[in-house]
Every structure is written in C-alpha cells, then in structure tokens.
Design a protein around this nucleic acid. Structure first.
Lengths: 338, 338
DNA sequence: TTGTAGGCGTTATCAA
DNA sequence: TTGATAACGCCTACAA
C-alpha cells in the first residue's frame, strides 16, 4: 500500500539503516546521502509507521484517559487541559468514557494496556480496588485527576475537598446562619462523602457551633435522595444547607419550594462543582468551583515527568478552589433568617 | 517485561503458532492443548500486544477524532455519541483538538496517519483544501460530522442548515415581523455562511417579503463584528434579527440594549446552536438546536460501515434540527413591534 | 560513513 | 492437529 522505509531505501540507493538514520537524524550521515534520502522520501510519499516504530522502541507516545462522561460538565475542560499539555510533549490521547461503571473502567484499562499506552490519567469519584489492581498488573504510570485512591499510592491532582466544604460552610456561617444542614455524598466515597463532611464539621466547630448528626443526611449524589433529605432537614428547621453537589442543591431547593418556603429569602443553599445547572437553575446556585483546566494540565504535566523519569517534587498536588456566590445565598447580602 | 506469546508457548510446551490459534480461537485445536494454553496464559499473566497484532494485520481498531475544541459546547455531546458507538464496535478513539487552526488540523491528520488509524471523523466549520488533500494522501475512510466539504466528496452527517435558517426566519415571520435582519457567518463559509443566508432568503420570498441585501450583514461569528452589524441594522429599523450563532445573537442584544431598545419588547432575536450562552444570557435566546449526540453516533456508525466495506445507503445523512423558543422572542407570544 | 542482520510480538502459510 | 518460519515496518548493535 503506502511506501515503507524499504521503498525509500531502494529509491535512494542506500540501505534502510541509512534511511532510518536520517529519519531520526542520528548524527552520522553525509549531507549528500541525506539529500538523496530526503528526495526519495518526498518522491515516494513515505510516511513512517508509528506502530512498527513503537513496537521496536517500546514506547507509543500515547496515553489513555479514563473519564466518567465527556459530555457532563467539568470533564471537557479537564480533558482540554490534558490535551493541550499532551500536544506540547507530543503525546496522543485515547479517550475512554466509563460512566463510572466498574466493568467499563477495568475493561478500558486492559485495552489501554494492550494498546501499550505509556501512561494513564484516571478520573472518577471513587477509585475501586479492582481498578487499582488492574493498574498494578499493568504497571504503567498513572495519575489521578480530580480524585484520589484511598491509600494515596498514585500521584494525584485535585482540590482540597475538606477545605472547600469548610469554606462553603464558613461562608454560610458568615451570613449569620447557625443551623446548617448538610446533604452529603455517599459515606463510602472518601472524597465527595467523607472529606466534605469533615470540612463541614470543622467549620462548625471552629465557629463554636455544636455539631448535630441529625443535620447530616446522605444524598448520595442522587436528586431523589437529596429531595427527601431536604424534607427531613426542614423538620429540624435548618436555616441554611450545604449540598455536596449542584444537582443535590437544586433538588433541595425544589423541596424547599414545595414546602412553601423560598430561597434565598427563607433558606440559603450552597452547592458544589459549579456545573451548568448551578448557572441556569432559578435561583442560580452559590457553589464551589474546581479549576478544571488546570487539574487536567497539571495532571498531564505530572505524567510527562513520570514518563521521563524526572524527579517529581510533589506526588499529590492541591490546586486552589473558589467560592462562587450567586442568588441562592442572596448574593451575599445578609438577611435575617426567617 | 511482561509476558509474550513466546513465554506462554514455552510454559504450555506448544509452539507460538498454537498459542496464537487459541488466542484467536481459530477452529482447529484440541480441547486438551487449549486448556494447557489457557492455563499458561493465566500463569504467565500474558496480555496480548495490540501493537504487534496491528502491525501484522494492518488494522488498529482505532479511529481519530478531529474536533475544534472539546471544551466548547456542542462537541462533548458529539464525541460522546461517537465514543458510545465506537465502544460498541470495539474501536478506540484518539482525541485531537485543533481550535480550527489549519496547521493543527493538518498536523493531526498526519500523526493519525502515522499511528495507522483505521478511519477519521472530522469536525470543524470549514473544510480546507489542505485538509482534504492530506486526507487524500492518507487514503483512509473519513466522515464529516456536523460539517461538509464543499464538493461533498466525503460522507457527512449534519443538519440541513438552510432549512434550519429557513425555520428560524419563518418563525420570526409568524410572529408578525416583516423587517428581519440577518447577521451571517463569513461568506467563505459554505455552511455557517452561505447556506444559512440562503434559508433566510427562501423564508422571506416564500412569505412575500422582498429580500433586501442591506439587511444582511456579515458577522463572521465574531461578537465584535456582530455588535457593529446590529448597530447598522438598527439604522434600518429592523424589528427582528436572526443571527447565525448564539454568540452573535448575544452581541446583537447588547447592541440593542446599548441603543436604548429592549429585547423582546422592541426587537426579537433568534440565535443558532443552542449553546450554553443562549441559556444563561438574559434574556435567554431563542435558537436552533442540533442533535449533537446523534450526529456523533450516526457518524461513527457510518464509519464502521465504511470500515467493514458494507454498502452504505446514504453518503450524506441529514438529521432533524429543532427550534427552541426562549425569552428573546417573548416565548412566542405575539407582540406588536414597536 | 554506510550496510548487514537480528529482533520487537504477532499472524498466517506451509509442511509435517 | 501442530510446528517452523516468513512476514509486518522499523531500530540498532556490530561489521565493514
């Protein structure tokens, strides 16, 4: 089909070794023969076969990307950050959508292994044991982006979720609230669950508010659960709520409305993630934003270092998050709670 | 490093040929030896090397995706559609962001060629000659998603842009408008430019409104240009405007406000693409939506057929678009124009 | 400076 | 039914 190194060699009347040399411009080769080879390349329309090359040198300059869902907010930005840096270092990217399904995650890691990627960037709320094990079998550098395995064995790039939750709750406290509910992620989720609960507790304690377990309800990142959770919190007369995701915050607001109360007039709500919904929902939702692009870019940069076996100063990078104030907390104007 | 087919062969005391046979379960091989091989595979932890395999069989089961920007609205959905179908047919995906820059497009196509992808899906407003030429040199199946080369040489999946523009303008006419401005895409863009202008003309003609070239101003998909274009249209006292993109529609609305007029009270505006901005801008913008996921899914399905050399019934697939009515046309309530 | 030849890990053709 | 062995296209000692 298309020309190979052999055709070029024949055309230039040299050995394939010489052709290979000019291709990789390894020092030693006369200007004259180099010219001949270059012409032959042009004439034959030769394009190197990266497959053959990779097979030989045992490097593909390709990395795998495992992402829950490229069409859901947050990830496109992360992926763009990754791709920009990857392009800079001449890496190509395999994109794999898992919907956070364990079987898909494992299967994709295996496929990426077979395709001999040089490294992998993993995204997904929780890092399952089977995933970790598959990574280990495969033995290629892995970076966790926006997440972390529970033993912190893998390098990671993320925000400080505890601090983020802390900031969200502290902000509610600064608005004068004392009775603050928490609609949390699942308890088995170290990041979206536990860490954010921890931040919630810390903020309360640090401001002399007693922690009341009744005010913490598991929403599991499901809107239906969050709705019910909010109804329950209303029984305790909370005057503000921090939800561990924007979706849950929106569901909570719906529950509040359905109980004939208003946001922000009666209750203040803060979400998490700065997703699309936090901007289009009425009222718009105050939330925590992660620096998506940077998480991607830094992750990829970290991976390139790993691949080049350069020393890395920091295995676990923490990037700054940001509180975005919107209507659901009255844009920060203090109010008397009802 | 990791086990190869040779190690398995040694372990199972058979030839590598036999191992290969059980791997590809090619018919002839005793149950007994098959068992031995299977055990050996497990014992050695053997994982096939797709590179070597691809080199041999001249197929990588990998396809390249050329997209302007995965982090900008519309594309994530398309890509998800592609990936879902790709996964279904066991194809993996290389993601390439080009920012619509010619050099990046060409360079990525070349790289994809070197990496021996089996096919490519191309996205981008205009399909440049250099891109077409690079595709031709490379000689691999290509599908255009959401776009089309001007000679229609490549298979494509997209909406009917002329009809979409027609529908948008017809809708404005149905609201009682007679003097309708058009802020178009660039004239050298067959799709976002010419086709939408054509639809605009048709709608007018079909409803007995004379086409006035003065009411068509080139916005080139740039907000600054669109702003100025709108100011010009205001001089002609238009009572409605169709902009060939949401961004331009938003810019136009700003121009209208800055001229002390109101949307939708004084002037109605329709955009194009149903991007993020059309939902968060105040007023929210009536617009045309493309079926992004389906464009991706159908494109990939088409590509799989091409790759399998199956006959394809339709080289150029047209998918249905949709008019989404929002505040910028008063949610469709008829108004007297000022 | 250039060429020869072995090998990267598979598949597939031929014999046996 | 199984085993040698020649590719696939490239890189890289080692020789010349």
């Amino acid at each position: 089909m298309s020309a190979t190194i052999k055709d070029v060699a024949r055309e230039a009347k040299v050995s394939i070794a010489t052709v290979s040399r000019v291709l990789n411009n390894s020092a030693v080769v006369t200007d004259e023969t180099r010219q001949r080879v270059l012409e032959a390349i042009k004439k034959t329309g030769y394009k190197p076969n990266a497959l053959a090359r990779s097979l030989k040198i045992q490097k593909t300059h390709t990395i795998g990307l495992i992402v829950p869902d490229i069409s859901s907010a947050f990830y496109p930005e992360v992926v763009r950050g990754i791709e920009d840096i990857a392009a800079m270092y001449n890496y190509n990217i395999f994109l794999c959508n898992t919907d956070q399904k364990e079987e898909k995650e494992v299967k994709y890691i295996e496929i990426l292994g077979e395709k001999q990627v040089d490294g992998i960037i993993f995204m997904g709320d929780i890092v399952r044991d089977s995933v970790i094990q598959t990574f280990n079998e495969f033995g290629v550098p892995v970076v966790m982006a926006g997440t972390q395995d529970k033993d912190k064995r893998f390098p990671s790039v993320m925000i400080d979720n505890e601090k983020a939750a802390y900031d969200a709750v502290k902000y509610l406290i600064s608005l004068g609230h004392k009775k603050i509910g928490l609609i949390s992620g699942p308890m088995h989720d170290p990041i979206g669950g536990l860490q954010r609960i921890e931040g919630y507790k810390k903020a309360l304690e640090e401001h002399g508010i007693k922690y009341d377990p009744e005010l913490v309800v598991e929403g599991e990142f499901k809107t239906r659960k969050a709705y019910l959770a909010m109804l329950k919190l209303l029984e305790y007369n909370v005057d503000a709520v921090f939800a561990a995701s924007d979706d849950m915050a929106a569901a909570a607001i719906n529950a509040i409305f359905d109980s004939n109360l208003k946001v922000p007039e009666d209750i203040h709500v803060v979400g998490f993630d700065n997703t699309y919904i936090s901007t289009i929902f009425r009222p718009t939702i105050t939330t925590i934003q992660q620096p998506a692009y940077d998480i991607g870019a830094v992750s990829m940069r970290l991976l390139t270092k790993l691949l080049a076996k350069e020393p890395i100063e920091e295995m676990h990078v923490i990037l700054p998050h940001q509180l975005i104030v919107r209507e659901s907390t009255g844009f920060g104007e203090e109010k008397n709670s009802r």
